[in-house]
Amino acid sequence: MSEAAPLLQVDGLRKYFPVRGGLFRRVVAQVRAVDDVTLQLRRGQTFGLVGESGCGKSTLGRSIIRLQEPTGGRVLLDGTDITRLGRQALLPYRRRMQMIFQDPYASLSPRRTVAQTLREPLDIHQIGTPKEREHQVSQLLDVVGMSARVLNRYPHEFSGGQRQRIGIARALSLKPDLIVADEPVSALDVSVQSQILNLIADLQREHGIAFLFIAHDLAVIQHVSDVVGVMYLGKLVEVADATALYSSPKHPYTRALMSAIPQPEPGSGRQRIMLEGDVPSPMNPPSGCPFHTRCPDAMAKCAELTPQFTNLGSERSPHAVSCHLYGHDS
């Protein structure tokens, strides 16, 4: 394997949910939650995935680590196709991929103490002797900035920020190579949010973990990401280095998204790109470019032809955009 081989390679991943209806509960439609997504993530890096609710970003994250079974496409971890591995064969790979969830109130079992929650993964994967596991659990708490005195407490005794720390400790317990973090800070207050973001950044530096970081907040995504992907209606529409994407966003959707964020600077006098209407239903996505129904720059062909990715960056630092404004065929 060449040195440049990515830790995670996702090829044309699709996840469709069947919609059943009628007398015999037949499949009457498909919700295309994730539709042909390709991305790469290198070791120790963060891929920031941003988009509005219902764009499929969470489903993409869950399909990658196979919490949900993909409908099509491939996921390669360190060059191994894990998409069709059976339960037993998947186990060693699952250990290398962990998840942090959005809601720290719902993602911890209310009936388990902190010690039990943190020990479970170590027990399942039979790591070390029971004595060593106990030691490791206290160490994990230390890593996320909590005292070992809380080991026998239950989740309801903690604040949202502390619960999220426990969730992070659980994800770290198996020393994963990849963590999928699905909106890990959006349920937290700003002052706590920045504490958790700093913690994640520290852990990444120290342990060289790669993150797929999913969020709807573009500012949060910029803060954590090396590479950013913008998703709309199940498809990636723009992928670039964070610096390139934020300094010169290309896709009309990315630009609208950026201009819509309220800035905590009075009188900043920015021109806002106001999008009309709502996101179309993924059950019945528009023809051609999925964004054409709301796009301020839409042309006639946008309704007919699905745009392909064009690289507007360099070979080394690609800036991929899927939009007819930049197509070669125009």
Binding site: V190, V220, H223, A242, S247, I261, Q263
Partner: peptide
């Protein structure tokens, strides 16, 4: 502490 879009990424 509000994360905001900046010209330079902070550590």
């Amino acid at each position: 502490s509000i994360p905001r879009i900046r010209d330079q990424r902070l550590t």
